[in-house]
Structure formats: structure tokens, C-alpha cells
């Protein structure tokens, strides 16, 4: 059963990402990004990464997606519910991206990955992530927090009317 659910979610993620990439309506793009993010969170659960999955939902869905929607609403004159967006270099882009994808697939399938035999079933990753985050990766954590603070102040400063 898990197998079926996994492939359903897999297809859902791909289809919603395609809507993001190809939809003429910007609003449909941004709302199908919701499906992509939630689907990727489900994929994380299949990868035994429960903490990452929930972080994905709380930051991507609750934060970034809302920011993107705000960006759309604040940068359009909203008279109709539909917002058209235009694309350029579509055929060229298709060629380049197709080439990149083909190369990636060839690499992935042609490589013999050093997959370990025994499956890894953590009960929970939270404790391990916490230990690592406040142990070996403490400096990285602090740098990240300073980066976030800088981003916060920078964004607030940039978005002010009088710069």
C-alpha cells in the first residue's frame, strides 16, 4: 500500500511542478506550488525524515508560499482573479532543460550508487538533528541565525517606502 501511495505522491509532485512551470496563470502556478511543497514533505516522510517534512511544511507552506502570494498580490493591479504571465525563449529553454534532464537521468541510472544494504529506520531524527545542530554544527547554526537576522533587517529596509 505504501508503494502505491508513494507513486501517487510522486506523480502528484511532478504534475504540480509542471503546472508551476507551464501554467499561463500566475495564480495557478503559485497555488500548485502548494501541492508540490506538501508532496515533497510526504516524500520526506517516505525517507524517514519526519523533522524535515514538518519543517518543509511550516517554512515553505506557512512562510515562503505566503511571501510569494504577497509578492504577487502587491505587484499586480487586481481587477480579475486571473493574472497572466508571459514566457520568453520557451523553445530554447525547453531544449536546454531537456538536455540537462537527459544528462541527469543518464548520470543517475548509469551510476552504481553505494547503497547500504540494511535499511535505516530511525525512530525519530529530532534528537540526532538537535545533538548535531548544537554540537558539531554549532558555528554553522550561529552563522545561519546571523544570516536570517541580516535577511530580516535587509528585507524590512528594502521594502520600506523611503529607502
Amino acid at each position: 500500500m505504501s508503494e502505491v501511495i508513494f507513486w501517487v505522491i510522486w506523480v502528484l509532485v511532478v504534475i504540480s511542478a509542471m503546472i508551476v512551470a507551464y501554467s499561463k496563470n500566475l495564480i495557478y502556478s503559485v497555488f500548485s506550488l502548494l501541492a508540490t511543497f506538501v508532496g515533497v514533505a510526504a516524500i520526506y516522510i517516505f525517507l524517514n525524515a519526519d523533522f524535515i517534512a514538518v519543517t518543509q511544511i511550516v517554512i515553505y507552506v506557512g512562510g515562503i508560499l505566503v511571501l510569494l502570494i504577497f509578492g504577487i498580490m502587491l505587484t499586480n493591479r487586481i481587477a480579475v482573479a486571473k493574472i497572466n504571465q508571459s514566457s520568453f525563449q520557451t523553445s530554447l529553454g525547453m531544449v536546454v532543460v531537456g538536455a540537462v534532464f537527459v544528462i541527469l537521468v543518464i548520470t543517475i541510472l548509469g551510476q552504481s550508487w553505494p547503497v547500504l544494504a540494511e535499511s535505516m529506520d530511525f525512530d525519530s531524527t529530532v534528537g540526532k538533528i538537535g545533538t548535531l545542530l548544537f554540537g558539531d554544527y554549532l558555528i554553522l547554526f550561529e552563522v545561519a541565525s546571523i544570516l536570517l537576522l541580516g535577511a530580516l533587517i535587509g528585507a524590512a529596509t528594502l521594502a520600506r517606502k523611503e529607502l
Binding site: 519526519d50 519543517t55 498580490m73 525512530d123
Partner: peptide, 26 residues
């Protein structure tokens, strides 16, 4: 194992639905 975090994060998905309905109402 992450029940509390899960409940808090899922509650934040509500905002997408609210924005969606508010937007779509035109």
C-alpha cells in the same frame, strides 16, 4: 515523535486556504 511540531505546522496551512478563497472571490 514530532507531534507538537506537526500540529503547529499543519495549522499554518490554513493561511493558504484563506488566501486562496480570498483571492478567488475577486
Amino acid at each position: 515523535s514530532i507531534g507538537l511540531f506537526y500540529v503547529v505546522s499543519i495549522s499554518s496551512v490554513v493561511v493558504i486556504g484563506i488566501v486562496m478563497s480570498g483571492w478567488a472571490s475577486n
